[in-house]
Design a protein around this nucleic acid. Structure first.
Lengths: 114, 114
DNA sequence: CAGTATCCACTGGGATACTG
DNA sequence: CAGTATCCCAGTGGATACTG
């Protein structure tokens, strides 16, 4: 079974076909990703610090979102070999390049959504 | 059963709590919504026209996304009582207020995602 | 502290068929 | 033409317990 050719076109496949807007939304659209990038714009943060700031997100999901953002090249993950372990998350340059976009999302949301 | 107090906090609940960024993403983050708003920035379109432009989206989903965008106050739906029926979709002022944001999403996506 | 591992519910979305 | 109505599946996310 060739999973790549057989599978029905999923979300991303189609989404990326036409519109770069959808492509971007696919990257920062997951649960909490907007907030994560938002938080990391200003400072480096540790895992628990992020989790507390995101008020209620589960460890599992936070890990997943961070891994996806890392894979997308937006987030840098640095592990310090200490006891107890310390892991710091920060934005890469590519991540920082989202700044003005995030600020626009923030602005529109403040004025129209909340 | 009070569905509002009993239910576990779902997506939007939590999302909106802290971050306007998430609130915005919740509104334009559904499948095809980015593309839809994008298309409607420039012209009014009919249902089938949209569906063809979105290449592959199902009728059911397109209807759903349009209804949600309408409910969010971004899209105006106008029904012409003709045979065969004609329905035209356009952006409201609130929808048009997304323009610069959409353009930024488009720009970032073109440069970083596709 | 920063995760995995499991299990489970809910929803998003696809496919297809039917209708005013 | 512009939808509804069904049925179905995969993915997302929550809760909880465990670990290096």
């Amino acid at each position: 079974m060739n999973s790549e050719t057989l599978k029905a076109p999923k979300h991303s496949d189609y989404a990326h076909r036409g519109c770069p807007v959808e492509a971007t939304l696919d990257i920062i659209g997951g649960k909490g990703k907007g907030s994560i990038v938002c938080l990391l714009l200003d400072k480096t943060m540790r895992f628990n610090e992020l989790q507390r700031s995101l008020d209620g997100i589960s460890q599992r999901i936070l890990t997943k979102q961070l891994r996806e953002l890392e894979e997308a090249g937006l987030v840098h993950r640095e592990v310090f070999p200490e006891v107890p372990p310390r892991v710091e998350y920060s934005l890469t340059d590519k991540g920082q390049s989202l700044r003005s976009l995030i600020l626009e999302l923030h602005k529109w949301g403040s004025e129209n959504a909340l």
